[in-house]
Design a protein around this nucleic acid. Structure first.
Length: 200
DNA sequence: GGTCAGATGGACT
DNA sequence: GTCCATCTGACCG
């Protein structure tokens, strides 16, 4: 299964599972850094009230949800950048949030960006932290193609797929009250046994 | 382990 | 202008 076909599938929950272990590579600041994804969450709008594209809410911020699968959705919360990839056929507002990864390439650069000296969980765990580790500090790459080998931020399959029983499904994190029952969906996936996973 | 303030873009009145 | 958010780091025990 190549990523282009995977991300074009119609079920973001099934896709999210298969993104665990995929490499997310950044060339920000002329430095190559990457992580192997250890934690992601699926967002299944328009029905999913936890998604920014709930009820087909289409604004300048959410416009990219309707673009091609593989497009990058970046938004800010407080002072942090959140990285997502759009999935599904064009016109279905689905996305998957990257929440954590295990450092893979450019460990020294990652540690410098995080102002940390040791390899530990907090280095690349948490969506805002992950973006910072990869040097993503603004929305420049909003709408760019994460499947394009020329894009400074991209996804690549570089390691064998993680087996099904190596992945754990739990509830999503940090959703507001208006998500209601959708907050209960087990649409957060993480690599079993990995230290690079958010608590909860 | 738990609690809590910071800090800012974006949606909506 | 107001309200809120897919959060983090610091602080306290």
């Amino acid at each position: 299964m190549d990523l282009t076909s995977l991300l074009a599938q119609s079920d973001p929950v099934a896709i999210a599972r298969q993104l665990i272990g995929v490499e997310l590579i950044s060339e920000a600041d002329g430095q190559e850094t990457s992580v192997l994804l250890t934690e992601v969450e699926a967002y299944y709008a328009p029905h999913d009230l936890a998604s920014h594209a709930r009820n087909n809410t289409r604004t300048a911020r959410t416009e990219v949800f309707w673009a091609a699968p593989g497009s990058c959705y970046i938004y800010t919360i407080h002072t942090h950048m959140m990285l997502n990839v759009v999935t599904g056929p064009v016109g279905t507002p689905h996305a998957i949030l990257f929440r954590a990864g295990a450092p893979h390439r450019g460990l020294e650069t990652i540690k410098a960006r995080r102002k940390m000296t040791k390899l530990k969980r907090q280095l690349t765990t948490g969506p805002g932290v992950l973006a910072k580790a990869l040097g993503i500090k603004d929305k420049t790459l909003y709408g760019s193609d994460l499947l394009d080998p020329e894009n400074p931020l991209r996804l690549e399959v570089t390691t064998p797929p993680v087996t099904k029983d190596g992945i754990v499904a739990t509830k999503r994190i940090g959703l507001g009250v208006k998500a209601g029952e959708w907050a209960e969906k087990p649409w957060r996936f993480h690599l079993k046994g990995s230290p690079f996973v958010t608590p909860g």
